[in-house]
Each structure stands twice: as structure tokens, then as C-alpha cells.
Design a binder for these strands. Structure first.
Length: 491
RNA sequence: GCCCCCAUCGUCUAGGGGACUAGGACGUAGCCCUUUCAAGGCUAAGACCGGGGUUCGAAUCCCCGUGGGGGUACCA
């Protein structure tokens, strides 16, 4: 039997990072076992449907490098892969359940149900549908059908006995059947609820393993009874731990976006990670390390390395907060591994987004020097401002002074002459010439302070890449021009 | 309220009865290096939620608390 797993998000707007991890674990599992990873869109709630959400989900997965074998655009022999396109199937099987006596029509209105819940809360009774329509007689059903606008179909959950959920991560969990509600399977709009749709789809799509978030575990007994009522084989279950807010309070939601109380940036949607300058390799690596881990005390790894080691049984059942600071660290590691050309290319859109104009040549020239300084691709902009518009260049006289350099004006003038006289303008010649000069103009004959001063004189920034590379990236003319402006300033 | 899940440094985790003076990573602090800022190197502080059992022996097994999380929708 070949492994078939699915990721089944709702198109409510975007790909949530927690959903992305669920997708990742499913995908890793499929790849490890040479199985299929299926993307299915669960859009049975029209009220929450958001235009463009399916694209957003696909874009997010694609960006992360998670590819699917069957899905809405891709096709496959088990389609369609969008639930609203399968609605007649759910209707058929819901009616079959009705015929078999496993389900019943419920005519309760929303108001009636609200009333019931209110009463339950007041009397401190267990919350849930009291099955009042389950005991309707044939005549009453006929009568209601004529009187009422619509009805839903509910499942007849056994009222006694226990159901054991076998979970690959948590082991066996017994549930008392009477605790499980008679869930709605088919809504009055004719569309199925999650419970009906996922069971039918997973069966007909021949899903072998269901890996889904832990929030579903309490409905697993219902799903088990649904499979039994249909007479279908059960897939295996694995309920994945939830991803929580950085505060540890509640599951991570879009409301957590922005900065939390401690000032850490909270990224929730996958596209936010991209916007924040994260590399997909780093994000995927990061995600794989939450709830699961590579082992061997190794934090950084590729998916290629991780897939063979991936085991459902190794997943930590405890919910976890995302260690965002670790992502920054990982991201910087991945940036440092990139080739200069690749990094320059990756940086470009982020510089463009900030309106920073830098030539490709200058960018490529400075990339080696700044690479090690970048945590995120967005960090480049600030560091490279000196390369862009000259109007940004505004050094301050006080900062051009250094206590170990007796005569900064003279030092800069000498440096200017030296650079002007350079036959070849390169990192090497700048390095040789300026370090030698530095030793002469400094009190203690160490070039350090002078080079720091020069770096500021050339870039006008308190923080920038090192001097030689910065000057080289700037070009000879601009460098000289800027030194002239510093000289004027000091005179 | 009722049901379910979970519990190791601040965070992510290793650990599945003796190998634990509880390991790693991020973060934090200090030092070194240094051309600012980084990176790198070294060092430090830092955890088995509590109580009962079981056992010669429990971070590891069981029970009870406590804490956190989830569910209890014609949402998924």
C-alpha cells in the first residue's frame, strides 16, 4: 500500500505558519515513504471564503519548497480537489446514512439552539446539542418538513460505550461516546461540514495517514464512527501539537501579528516571513525543528537530510511557541552560505522595495563584505544607503574627530591624495596604501582608529561594511568626492 | 461547567529505570579577536511543576494535585 497523505486547508485568506508546519510534516512523511502528498481545498464554509486565498496557499507552499503530487491545479485521478466541486458526493452519502439509520434530520433553528445553549450555561449543564430531533416520530418529521424552511442532517452517535482513538503520537485515547455530540454532517445550505467531507474525501482519495492539528483530536471519535457507519477502513491518525503564541497564551493566530509585549516580532503568515527577509530554506529548517528534531544535536540541515530521519513517533506531543530568535540565527547562517551572486540577486527586490538605487556592479562588489552582517535580506538596505543617493551622505564634523588621531583633517587629506594617486583602484591597493598610511597618522602607530575614521568619512554611516570594500563599491570618483566634502567640513 | 491533550534551562529541544555532576541550540552576560557593526573563538549563568507511590535505583513507570493548551458551532 502506498502512503497517501494530504494537507487540507480552508481558503480563508493566507497560509498560516502553523498550517505550513502541518503541511511540511505531511510532505516529509510522504517523501520519506515514497508516497503521495495531496493538496485539497476545504471550502465548504462559503461565509469564510476569501477571494485569492487558494492562490495564497499555493504560493506559500511553493515558496517553502513543498510540492504536491495531486491538487486543484495539478489534477490527479482522485479529483476534483476542491470540496465545493464534490458537493453531490457528500449529499449522496449523507442520504445513505439517513437511509441506514445512522443519521437524522434536525429542524432546530439557530435561535432555538442559542436558547438551548443559554439554558445549558445557566444550569451549568454540559454544553452541546440535546438530540431533541433524534427522537422525532415519522409523523412529526413529515410535519416539520412542511412547516420548517430547511433542516440539517445530524449523525446518530452511540449513546453508550467507548471509542478508542489510536494516535500515532499519543497512543490510545478512550472517549465515552455519550460525550460526543450528534454533529451536523450536512448543513441547511446542502454543503457538508468538515466532519462529513473529510471522511468521505479521505476515503475516496485513499488517504492512508491523517496528520492534522491537535485541535481535531476530540472529533476523532466521531470520525471513527462515521467510517464504521459507512463500512470503510480507517486511516491512521497522528495529531500534531499546536503552535502557540510567543507569549504562550493561546494558539498562534493572525491577531498575534506585529510585535508582542516583549518587543519580539511575531510573524504569522508565510508571506510575512518572506517580506521580513527570510529564506525559505531557513524557514523550513526552523519549522522542522519545532515539535520534531533532527537529532545528533544538529540544528541546521536540509530537507534532503531530514526526510530519511523523519518519524511520526518522534514528534513531541507538547504544544510549542515559535523560537523566532532562532530563525534569525538560522537565516543568517543560510545567507552566509549563499554565493555572492545569488545573494546580490536575492537582495535586489528588498532594496528596490525601499527605493534604494544601487547598481548591480556596486552591489556585487559590496556583497562579500556585508554578507556576514546580514540576519535578514531586509537588513541590507540600511547598510547600503551610503551606496545610493549622495544626498544621504551627511557626515558630522564631531564624528570625524578621533582622540588617537591628532590631526584628522590632515589624515583625511593625505588619504585623499593617496587614493587619487592610486594607479589601480581595488580592495587590495586600498588596503595596502591606507593601512600603511594609518600607522603613520595614529598616536600609537596602529591603523585601526584611522581606518574607522575613514570608514565614516567615506560612508557617512556609523554602521556599514568595512572601509576598503565600501570605498571600492562606491568607486574612485565618489570616494574622492566624499573625502573632499569631509575636508571642507573640517576646514 | 463537562471532555480531551500536554508538562526538562527564558525559548526550541536531547533524554524512553542505572551511561545524568541532566546534553545541544537560540537568546542573555563576560572575555578574546578586530577597521565601526557583525561574524568567529572561549567562558558563565540557566531546567527535570508539586506530592505520593512502584523499584535496590526514577527526569524517565503509576496515581493525585497544580499549571498550560485544545474542544464543547449549520467554522474548519
Amino acid at each position: 500500500m502506498t502512503v497517501r497523505v494530504r494537507f487540507a486547508p480552508s481558503p480563508t485568506g493566507y497560509l498560516h505558519i502553523g498550517g505550513a508546519r502541518t503541511a511540511l510534516f505531511n510532505w516529509m512523511f510522504a517523501r520519506k515513504h515514497g508516497g503521495k502528498f495531496i493538496l485539497r481545498i476545504e471550502d465548504t464554509d462559503q461565509k469564510r471564503y476569501v477571494e485569492g486565498a487558494v492562490e495564497a496557499i499555493k504560493d506559500g507552499l511553493t515558496w517553502l519548497g513543498i510540492d504536491w503530487d495531486e491538487g486543484p491545479d495539478k489534477g490527479g485521478s482522485f479529483g476534483p480537489y476542491v470540496q465545493t466541486m464534490r458537493s453531490s458526493l457528500y449529499l449522496t452519502w449523507a442520504n445513505r446514512l439517513l437511509d441506514m439509520g445512522h443519521a437524522y434530520k434536525c429542524f432546530c433553528s439557530a435561535e432555538e439552539l442559542d436558547e438551548m445553549r443559554k439554558e445549558q450555561t445557566e444550569k451549568k449543564l454540559p454544553l452541546g446539542y440535546d438530540r431533541r430531533c433524534r427522537i422525532l416520530t415519522e409523523e412529526e418529521i413529515k410535519k416539520r418538513e412542511n412547516e420548517t424552511d430547511g433542516f440539517v442532517i445530524r449523525f446518530k452517535m452511540p449513546m453508550d460505550g467507548t471509542t478508542v482513538v489510536k494516535d500515532m503520537i499519543r497512543g490510545e485515547i478512550p472517549y465515552e461516546n455519550k460525550q460526543i455530540n450528534d454533529a451536523v454532517l450536512l448543513k441547511s445550505d446542502g454543503l457538508p461540514t468538515y466532519h462529513l467531507a473529510n471522511v468521505i474525501d479521505d476515503h475516496f482519495m485513499e488517504i492512508t495517514h491523517i496528520m492534522r492539528a491537535d485541535e481535531w483530536i476530540n472529533t476523532a471519535p466521531l470520525h471513527i464512527h462515521l467510517y464504521q457507519a459507512f463500512g470503510w477502513d480507517m486511516p491512521d491518525y497522528a495529531h500534531l501539537p499546536l503552535v502557540m503564541n510567543p507569549s504562550g497564551k493561546g494558539k498562534l493566530s493572525k491577531r498575534s501579528q506585529g510585535f508582542d509585549d516583549s518587543g519580539t516580532e511575531v510573524l504569522v503568515r508565510v508571506d510575512e516571513f518572506e517580506k521580513a527577509g527570510m529564506l525559505p530554506e531557513a524557514v523550513v529548517n526552523f519549522l522542522a525543528n519545532v515539535g520534531w528534531n533532527f537529532g545528533e544535536d544538529q540544528e541546521k540541515f536540509t530537507m534532503e537530510e531530514a526526510i530519511p530521519k523523519f518519524n511520526l513517533e518522534d514528534i513531541n506531543p507538547a504544544p510549542s511557541q515559535l523560537p523566532y530568535s532562532k530563525l534569525d540565527w538560522l537565516n543568517s547562517k543560510y545567507i552566509q552560505e549563499m554565493s555572492d551572486a545569488d545573494l546580490a540577486k536575492a537582495l535586489k527586490p528588498y532594496l528596490d522595495a525601499e527605493g534604494l538605487e544601487v547598481t548591480d556592479e556596486a552591489l556585487l562588489a559590496i556583497v562579500p563584505a556585508m554578507k556576514v552582517r546580514l540576519k535578514r535580506l531586509t537588513d541590507g538596505e540600511e547598510m547600503l544607503q551610503f551606496l545610493s543617493k549622495d544626498e544621504v551622505f551627511a557626515p558630522e564634523a564631531e564624528k570625524l574627530a578621533h582622540k588617537k588621531i591628532a590631526d584628522p583633517l590632515n589624515a583625511i587629506m593625505k588619504a585623499r591624495d593617496l587614493i587619487a594617486g592610486l594607479a589601480e583602484f581595488s580592495v587590495e591597493t586600498l588596503s595596502a596604501g591606507l593601512s600603511a598610511l594609518g600607522e603613520k597618522v595614529t598616536d600609537n602607530e596602529k591603523a585601526g582608529p584611522f581606518l574607522g575614521l575613514m570608514r565614516y568619512a567615506v560612508t557617512g554611516q556609523p554602521v556599514s561594511p568595512p572601509l576598503y570594500e565600501s570605498a571600492f563599491a562606491l568607486g574612485k570618483e565618489s570616494t574622492l568626492e566624499r573625502l573632499d566634502r569631509c575636508i571642507e567640513l573640517l576646514k
